[in-house]
Every structure is written in C-alpha cells, then in structure tokens.
Design a protein around this nucleic acid. Structure first.
Length: 806
RNA sequence: GCCGAAGUGGUGGAAUGGCAGACGCGUCGGACUCAAAAUCCGAUGAUGGCGACAUCGUGUGGGUUCGAGUCCCACCUUCGGCACCA
C-alpha cells in the first residue's frame, strides 16, 4: 500500500466530511478523552508527544466505534519559562517563537492523523483564553481562596532576579554561577489547604493508578496529633505541633525553623551573631538538603529557654535547619528518645535527655525508638499505653488552655506569583490608599504588553513597562500600580479541560449547561510526573468552582492513565544536551504515520515506556502487507475447499482476537492487542484455501473493523476497497460471539507434587472427579504414583491438576 | 534523604497465585533462485542426553503456599516526583 498517498487521501476526507469533529447531535453517550496538552517547546513534535497521543487516539477511535460520541480536543500550554529564557538568549520574542512552534506542531499533529477536534483548539497564551484564567483568579480571590503573604524565592544577587528551582545548580545560578540565596517576597497564594481533606477523601472515588493516588496521599500528608503551648521565660507563648503528645515528658529542647519570625525576638544578645550567621547559611540550603536524614545535624542555641507545660521543666531553645517553617507551626519539640532526628541532634550537641517509652514490663525501649509502648518517667501518666496517653496528656493541657487536638497537613498553599514576563498577568491593582484591589471583570483581559524589556536586571519585566504598570485605582480613582507578576502556568492548565467544549465562547469561560453535559473527563492520559502538582491543582480548582456554583461534579478526571517515558537509545532521558533526541518525523516520512503508530503501540509496554530502538520497525509494514493481502483476498476469492475444522479454527481465532483486543484497548494494553491481531492474521494464513467464500468475506470484514483504531488510514482504505461506503469509524466495533469460543476438549497440565509431569486432554465440562480419573489413568502418572499414597488432589479448572503423593 | 515505581532469554516485551518466555526482533538451518533480494517453512532460555526426557532458571537473600515472576520481610540497582521546568 502506498501509505503516503492513502494517509493524505483519508486526512483530506476526514477534513472534508468533518469526520473527526465532535458533533453533539451524533448518536451515543458522550465520551471525553483528553491527553495532557503540550508545551510548544523547541520547534518539533517530540517522540514523547507521539507516544502519548497516537496510542491514546487509537483508544479514542475504539471508543467511538463502540458507539460513544467521543470528544478529543487538543491545545497548547503555551506560557512558560523556556520561551522566556530562549528570548533572553536569542532576542526572539516569546510570543513570536511560541506562535511559530505551535504552527509547526499543529502541522505535525495533523500528519499523525489523530481524531483531534480542531475547532475547539485552545492556547493558554491567547488573550481570549487567559482572560478567563484571570477571571478564575478573581473568583478565587472573591471567595477568600487567593491571598498574599511573604514567601521565599530563589534570588540571584548577581543577576538581581528571581530564578526557578530548575535553574539552581548545586546552590548556584545556572546563568552566572553566583550563590543563590532565599529571599522573602510578597506573593499570591491559592488556599488549596482548605480542600486538603476533600482532596484526600476524593481519591477513593476515582479510577486512577494506585501509585498516583498514593503519591497524592503522601503529598497531602495528613497527620493527626495535637498543638501544645510552651511558654518562654518572658511570658510569651508559642505552639508546637506533635503527633506524639505521649512523649511530651521527654522534651529535651525546642527547635525553631531558622527563619521563624520569633527567633530574632528571643535570641539573647550574646547569641545574636551566631544565630544571624546560621540564618544566612540556611538561606543557601534547599529544603531537600535540609530534610536529609543522613546529613550531619546543624543548629545554634538562641540563649532562650522554654517551659514544658506538662512538667514545668526548663529546656533550651535552638534553631536548626531540619525544622521547616512551612510545616506545622515551624517549631518542634525535641524528644531524643522517640525520634531519630532529635536523637542525632541532642547527641551531637550534648543536650541531656531521658527516656519516656517503655515496654509493658517497665523495661525501657532502646533509644531512639519511634515505636509505641507504655509511658514512663512522666509523673501522672506512667504505665499508660502510648495511644491512651496521647489523649490523656492533651486532655489535661486542654483544660489549662494549653493544647488542642490538631490535624496537620504537609500540603502547603499553592504559590502562584511568578516574577516573570511570559505568563498571564495577575489581575490585581495595588493602590496606596485602598490596598490590593481586583481588576473589575469587565476590564479583563489584562493584556500582556508586547514591548517589554525582559532581560533580568533586578526589576520585574512588567514593572518596567510604564504604560502597563500605571493605572487608576478602580475603587478611588487615584494613582495605582498593577501587580507586576504573572501567574504560574499551572494555573492556566488547572482549568483548560473545562474550556475545551466552549473554546470559542467570548462571553464566559464555560457555561453550566455545556459543562454539565460534557464533563467530567472520562479518560485523561498523560505523564506520571504530574502526579502531585498539575493533577492536584486541577482537582482543587474543580472543587472550588463547584462550591461557587459553576459546576456540579467533584472530580475533573474520572479515569487517569499514565503513559511511560520513551528514553533515548542510550537509556537516558532525551535531551538536546545529551544529543540523544529522536525525531519522529524521520520515521513518519519513511514509513508513514500508521506504521509508526503501530510500532509505538507494539514495541513498548504503554505504561512503562523504555529506551527507543528502531529494531523491528521494518516488521510492521511487512505485517500490514500481509494483513492487506488477507483482507483483499475477499475481493477475488478464487478456489477453495470448505474444510469444517479450518473454518472452526478461523472463527475461533477471529472471535478470540475480538474479545481480547477489546479488553486490551480498554486497558491501554496496546502491545498485547497488536499481538492478538497478529495471531489472528497468522491463522488466516494457516487456513488459506480451506474457508468457504461467504464466511471468509464476513471474517475479513470483521478484521478490518478490528484493526481500524490501530491503523486508521490503512483501515479506511481497505474498508473502501471491500466496497463499503463512508468512514470505517462510523461502523460498529465487532463484538465477540462467545459460542465460537467453545471447544470440545481442553488440555490440562498434570502435576505430581507440584512438578509438571505430563499433559492430558479432557472433554470440556468434565467434572473434577472425571479429570482426576483421566489423569490417574495416564501411564506417565501411574508410574509416578505407583507405590505411594495419594494424599490430596487439586484441580484448577481449565488449567491444571496437582496430585500430592507421599 | 523522603514519597512512588520498576528489575523476566541475545533483544522489545507476555503471563486473574496455577504449563514462565505469548506476539515480535535478532540469530541459525531449510525451500524457492544462476545468484541476490523478497517471500515461505522449521529451530532458538541454560546445562546434560543420540533420544524420550531430566535438572536449573524471572535482580540478591529469606519467608508464606500443594503451587510464587506474581504475596510478605530485608537488601542491591535503575527510574519518576519533592512544591518557581512543564
């Protein structure tokens, strides 16, 4: 087959007949298949995009043939850092490079021949889109879910700019090599923590990979415990969060996060220098380093002492980088006997401590031990089980107003301010009189100006753009300034699935009517690297919009599937710097898109991915040629002998393939689906010339339908050549006829003492007793069993029989 | 470091706790051919045996079970994420 010609022919046909466009009036239940949209980086469609989109498109086409009205849109997540960095390096404006990249990728996506619904395409950098991203920000703000606070950023003192984590290499600026420090800046946050509990419980209601759910659970990090109030010698108080109130009697010291605001207040003059130096040192360390349990513990004594509310003991107050200001209250109680980190810390700094956990018999746990046991060395609670003591200790302190039950989450609020140019401007105005004022919705979008100097020089790029930044306060009319930051691109991608069905609506981001009909997304396919961020943000936004009354479902993505990662031939992640990037265009132009698609589906385990290799790609056109011969034979059938056994075998093969391919496609198990088709085609070859003409034609027709989702252009062409009118994708997917799968007899393995000794053939439906009888009558088994006692016989229907002798 | 995965022939990969290696690639042998290509047929985990067969075999070491690639424990290696890459 001339793949080039056929692919062009059917692409043109689909376009002319709007075959791929979603039509609400088409029959069938709606089915929303969504692939994560891509960032238009570089200038080419990456092999990873192909791997994500082509097999998923086969799934979508399969669903359509099953009778669903499938909606499969495509778009671009077009704002982001790489375009801005590229601009800084080359002087090419992000808008220009992005527009160009999108055009190239659109052409390549069209060549793929996927069933994308282009009329609903969207780009996040389009003012018609980000108008509504800004609208989303305003709704969150109105409902108290967006707020400002001080938060640290990576600051390069030499470039005088904020840099992304990715650009920090070994604590140094990727561009200039200067040491990065953490600097506090006022930034916007979304209150995702308000939804922590529901984000956690909602996981039980969705069909997502267990590992992804598990990652989100850990990310949310719920822990139940209590907050306990300590006092300082000057009478001031502070609270610590602990999951182990039962060990309160064992507190040897208290640690503040070095950046905690109270630290400067409590530090004694003689300790001030050391504390300041430690704070500076900590500002150069990343959170990951800080939490490392193998890293030598560091810390500094502040000179202050705190009073333990339970036993009145006076303990020293330290600062240490293993305490993070973002978790709990930013202060922890140090209990060396019950926590390995605290033990290492106290041991290193010679802080005295005691053991407060023992076994039932009073023998103390070996320190450190995080196990539960029985309380000791804690007057009033000794001998109590740890679990009970938790409650009892909190109860006692609660009566004094010094503690409360507390559920703490590791999840932090979502920081959305970016001190960068290429993003959606934050629709807020800062007025000296009125404070932070939202831009009135009628004034949206706040357009991103084109002529902006975004080379890093100490100021936010938008801050330098006079005509952008200066504005009248919408409340008092006085002189005010726009927020000069842009939104995190995750904000753009947190709601795009809601926009697709109404991508051309200029009056609203989406309407209740359409969203009710089209959402949630039935199957969402994308990389596992998004497990904790994008996928959590999207869930949060959905729940927030639901509570505002804009929609009526709890979860945006009913089912989630992750494709694996295709690596370079060297087994490493593809990157320009490693020079191992595979360009799919080369294969598409050499073999055609159907062949390449089928190769990607057959050659890898979809969820696993793996190193790319072109070994075996040549086998695909060979297979398709054979498939074509087998199918077109129906048109010029010639002579045959109708052999009943062969006919039965072929009917079995076709129905077996239908059954398994259907299951495999539903499970995204493309490689086994293709294998089942190959087996089926092999049986066509084996039974050649022995099948009645009418039966052959009917089976060949089913075969075309069976493979249509896998090789769409190819199947259209053969479908037409068999004399059918219209698109094969308007046909129904074949359904397995179970009666053709019934065999007269089945083969079973026979084990003696769990070792396979022979195989027997038994009639279908034979009872366990009959099977046992046949097995024991087999000469091979008679020999094994003779002289021994049969102790037990295990029959696994249609699999094996295991005879235990001894 | 923490969280989450993965490890199966020469190779990509199959296997609801039930015949490990489906389906391919590669390799070897054969047919067709003057020859080559293409195509077709057969073999192909390792070891021993002429052979029927036997033994071993799913990262390593233990365990549960009539039976473990699959479940449990410990370890090793590789990969993904760790909140400003998307």
């Amino acid at each position: 087959m001339d793949y080039k010609y056929v692919e062009k022919k059917w692409n043109d046909y689909w376009k002319a007949h709007e075959t791929n466009d979603f039509k609400p009036e088409r029959k069938g239940e709606k089915f929303y298949v969504l692939e994560m949209f891509s960032y238009p980086s570089g200038s080419n469609l990456h092999l990873g995009h192909w791997y994500n989109y082509a097999p998923t498109d086969s799934y979508a086409r399969f669903k359509r043939m099953q009778g669903y009205n499938v909606f499969q849109p495509m778009g671009f997540d077009a704002f982001g850092l790489p375009a801005e960095n590229f601009a800084i390096k080359t002087g090419i404006h992000p808008k220009d490079s992005t527009t160009k990249n999108i055009a190239t990728m659109e052409r390549q996506l069209a060549e793929m021949g996927a069933m994308f619904d282009w009329p609903h395409e969207l780009y996040t950098c389009d003012p018609k889109y980000y108008k509504w991203t800004q609208w989303l920000f305003l709704q969150l703000y109105k409902h108290g879910l967006a707020y400002q606070k001080l938060a640290p950023v990576n600051w390069c003192p030499s470039c005088k700019t904020v840099i992304a984590n990715e650009q920090v290499v070994d604590g140094k600026c990727e561009r200039c090599g200067a040491e990065i420090i953490r600097k506090e800046m006022t930034q916007w946050f979304f209150r995702i923590t308000k939804y922590a509990e529901e984000l956690l419980s909602g996981l039980d209601t969705i069909d997502w990979p267990e590992k992804t759910k598990s990652m989100q659970r850990n990310w949310i990090g719920k822990s139940e415990g209590g907050e306990v109030e300590f006092s300082l010698e000057n009478g001031k108080t502070f609270r610590v969060f602990t999951t182990r109130p039962d060990t309160l009697g064992g507190v040897a010291y208290v640690v503040f996060a070095p950046e905690h605001p109270l630290v400067n207040e409590i530090t004694t003059p003689d300790r001030l220098e050391a504390v300041k130096a430690y704070q500076v040192a900590t500002s150069k360390t990343s959170d990951i380093e800080r939490q490392s349990t193998t890293k030598e513990k560091t810390g500094v004594f502040t000179g202050a002492y705190a009073i333990n509310p339970l036993n009145g003991e006076k303990v020293p107050v330290w600062i240490a980088d293993y305490v993070l200001s973002t978790y709990g209250t930013g202060i922890v109680m140090g209990v060396p006997c019950g926590d390995t980190r605290d033990y290492a810390f106290a041991t290193k700094f010679g802080i005295p401590f005691k053991n407060v956990v023992a076994f039932r018999d009073g023998k103390q746990h070996e320190m450190p031990s995080e196990e539960y046991g029985y309380v000791c060395n804690t007057p009033g609670f000794d001998g109590m089980k740890s679990e009970d003591a938790k409650r009892a200790i909190l109860d006692r302190l609660e009566k004094l107003g010094k503690s409360s039950l507390k559920i703490n989450y590791r999840l932090r609020d979502w920081s959305v301010s970016r001190q960068r140019y290429w993003g959606a401007p934050i629709p807020m105005i800062h007025c000296p009189k009125c404070g932070a004022v939202p831009v009135p919705e009628k004034d949206l979008p706040v357009e991103l100006p084109y002529n902006v100097n975004f080379t890093p020089d100490g100021q936010s790029p938008l801050g330098k753009c006079e005509e952008f930044i200066n504005v009248k306060c919408p409340v008092c009319g006085g002189k005010a300034k726009r927020d000069c930051d842009t939104l995190d691109t995750f904000v753009c991608s947190s709601w795009y699935y809601l926009r697709y069905p109404e991508a051309r609506n200029d009056e609203a981001p989406f309407t209740r009517e359409t969203v009710d009909k089209m959402l949630p997304v039935d199957t969402y396919v994308g990389g596992a690297e998004h497990a904790c961020m994008h996928l959590l943000y999207a869930r949060f936004v959905t729940k927030a919009l639901r509570d505002m009354g804009y929609l009526d479902f709890d979860e945006p993505f009913k089912r989630l599937v992750h494709q694996g990662v295709i690596l370079g031939t060297d087994g490493a992640r593809m990157s320009k710097s490693k020079g191992n990037v595979i360009n799919p265009d080369k294969y598409v132009s050499e073999y055609g898109s159907d062949v390449f698609r089928l190769y990607l589906m057959f050659g890898f385990s979809y969820m696993e991915g793996g190193p790319f290799s072109e070994d075996g790609i040549k086998a695909i056109p060979k297979f398709l040629d054979k498939l074509e011969r087998v199918i077109l034979k129906a048109n010029h059938y010639g002579t045959f002998v109708s052999d009943k056994a062969s006919e039965k075998e072929l009917e079995y093969a076709v129905n077996y393939a239908i059954k398994n391919v259907t299951n495999d496609l539903d499970a995204f198990s493309f490689n086994t689906a293709v294998a089942r088709v190959m087996e089926c085609v092999n049986v066509f070859g084996k039974t050649e010339g022995k099948i009645g003409e009418e039966l052959y034609k009917s089976l060949a027709g089913k075969l075309v339908l069976l493979v249509a989702p896998l090789v769409p252009h190819f199947a259209e062409e053969l479908h037409e050549k068999l004399g059918f009118q219209g698109s094969v994708f308007d046909e129904k997917y074949p359904v397995c006829d179970e009666s053709k799968l019934v065999k007269d007899e089945i083969e079973l393995a026979v084990q003696v003492n769990s070792k396979i000794r022979t195989r027997i053939v038994v009639p279908t439906g034979a009872s366990n007793e009959e099977i046992e009888k046949i097995a024991l009558a087999d000469p091979r088994i008679t020999a094994e069993v003779s002289g021994k006692t049969v102790r037990k016989v295990i029959v696994i229907p249609s699999r094996l029989i295991n005879i235990i002798v001894g």
